[in-house]
Amino acid sequence: MRILYLHQHFSTPGGATATRSFAMARALAARGHEVTLACGGYEGAETGLAGPFHRGRREGSVDAFRVVEFAVPCGNRQGLGERAGAFLRYAGRAAGLALSGRFDLALASSTPLSVALPALLARRLRALPFIFEIRDPWPELPRAMGLGSPGLWWAMDRLADAACRQARAVIALSEGMAETARAHGARLVEVLPNGCDLHLFGPHVPPWRPGCIPPDAVLATYAGAHGPANGLHQLVEAAARVRDPRLHLLLVGEGAEKRRLQAEAAGLRNLHFLDPLPKLRLAGLLAGSQIGLQCLAPVPAFAEWTAPNKLMDYLAAGLPVVANSPGRAARLLEDGPCGLVTPPGDAPGLAAALDALAADPARRAALGRAARHQAEQRWDRRLLADRFCTLVEAAA
């Protein structure tokens, strides 16, 4: 089967962003399918291509599949208007590829929601069936955060309606996201969560930590976006409140809020910032950390509508997790248990949880063992990739 995989933010493990589409494309290729993955240039991503662009695109073989990269830069530091323009430019280039190539099936992975546009156009003009994957529900999340306008949300609702109703199947990363797909009219919805890369992360990885961290520090690491949705000002306040002098917090990543966070943290000796790290380097950092940090802004919709990759990385690394996320993430951490959960928006609670784990290495070790066990038993990405392939083949 010839599959066109549309994911604007694709990255290999050489980059600093999520690698789900890399793992799924590789699994499809291993099953004998001919996969073409079309992406843009996402900040922090590494597509595996290094040659020059010709007429705004370059292509080549990555692992066992073909990658077509369009020269459409996009990143969290861009303003909303600039990002919207990047979304539409990618959709236009991807539509041209979908209409000119010979494919049996398209797989459109959102976000952004605009990735559905080329899939819908190819379905209308070429009768190309497609599968729609929801990795973040739009417009539900932007609307819950107050980002955008009623007119924009209305337009995105109509696009989500069309994508969910016309797709052969919808793949959602959580049951909460699956409910949004059903509300948009999807008939066949399958839940396939994010998974753990047990080869890349784990106790077998040599530990590493940056020179700014004292050798005897208890290191709590957050690795992810620094945007409004992440609410990282809570970690800045928590760092100011912790009492254990050995405890240090490290925030790794990039985003629109990073400069403001650094200004807020001025004078705090136990809070540090790093630029995004390639996944291979991040694996060493997590091996050299004692706690994983999961933080989100106090938005009620986040309880069931998010599925953070960083949480899977922490579990795979065998780290106890401190999180302020209710709902799905809280249930996951309570199973084992493999972490501590504090109420959303409660920076003092975050500080108290961090102090409690810093003072109790035996408890940290027990929670970390439970985290790795859960990663191996429930979230092994290889098993989830097999399920993904089966769903794609059945839908086709």
Rank of each mutant, 00 (worst) to 15 (best):
G202Q: 06
G227V: 12
P245R: 13
H226R: 01
G284F: 07
G284Q: 13
P193T: 09
C196V: 12
L250H: 03
L219G: 06
A229Y: 04
L250T: 05
T221H: 02
H204K: 10
W208H: 13
L235S: 09
L286K: 06
E264Y: 06
P193C: 07
F201L: 08
P228N: 03
G288W: 01
G284R: 14
L277R: 14
V191G: 05
P203I: 00
A287I: 12
R243W: 00
Q234M: 13
N194H: 11
A186C: 13
R281Q: 15
G231M: 10
E254R: 14
I291W: 01
G202C: 09
A238M: 07
L280P: 00
R241P: 01
L200I: 12
L293K: 02
N230D: 12
E190I: 08
L235K: 06
I291V: 15
P207N: 03
P207Y: 03
V189I: 12
I291L: 13
L249S: 02
A186E: 05
R243G: 07
G267N: 09
H272Y: 05
G267R: 09
D244L: 02
G195T: 10
Y222R: 03
G253Y: 09
A220S: 02
G267C: 11
N230Y: 10
H272F: 06
H248R: 11
K279I: 08
A256S: 15
E264Q: 15
P276S: 11
D275A: 15
P206F: 02
P193A: 05
P210D: 01
G231A: 11
G227K: 04
L219F: 06
E237C: 02
E254N: 14
P193H: 06
G288C: 02
A220M: 03
P276N: 08
L232G: 11
A287Y: 07
P193Y: 03
H233F: 02
E257C: 13
D275G: 14
W208G: 03
D197N: 11
L219A: 03
H199Y: 00
L277C: 11
A263E: 15
E254A: 15
